[in-house]
């Protein structure tokens, strides 16, 4: 259901990452996920400790200059990496509302930043499937070398 896709966000100094798309039966609304590592981000000893950190380190701004947090973030983890996730909304009068789930987890000075983007609210099942992709070998191997 999830397959690798082309990285389309604009380039910055964190470089590009891996992109995935989930559609058809797995994600009725269609979900795109952009995931990459950020090495040497600050506060690397306290990790992603609060919502300011997820707002600062997350990649929502690659998708829109302005966006709105839907709710406070919550603690999350992917394997040994710990951090936070937070739901955002991007409103555009031409294309309507885009829903974004930003997941930022870290260990030491290395963060994994994943951004899920969909035209519909992202369900728990879609989120769980996306996290499984992040824990799968292709992304893990890529992340280990980036």
């Amino acid at each position: 259901m999830w397959h690798e896709a082309k990285w389309t966000p604009p380039i910055d100094n964190w470089g590009t990452g891996m992109a995935f798309v989930c559609d058809n039966d797995g994600c009725p609304g269609g979900v795109r996920m952009y995931a990459r590592t950020k090495v040497g981000f600050c506060n690397c000893y306290t990790g992603v400790a609060n919502d300011d950190e997820i707002d600062r380190i997350g990649d929502v701004d690659l998708h829109a200059e302005t966006y709105t947090a839907e709710a406070p973030g919550v603690v999350t983890a992917i394997g040994d990496l710990k951090g936070r996730k937070r739901v955002f909304r991007i409103d555009n009068r031409f294309v309507g509302t885009t829903h974004v789930l930003s997941i930022v987890v870290a260990s030491d000075c290395k963060a994994v930043v994943a951004t899920l983007v969909s035209n519909n609210p992202i369900s728990e099942a879609e989120e769980a499937a996306a996290v499984a992709v992040l824990r799968d070998k292709p992304f893990q191997q890529w992340a280990a070398n980036n």
Binding site: C42, D55, R56, E65, T66, Y67, T68, A69
Partner: peptide
């Protein structure tokens, strides 16, 4: 403040 955080 809300939204993206300008570069520190």
């Amino acid at each position: 403040a809300t939204g993206s955080v300008p570069t520190m």
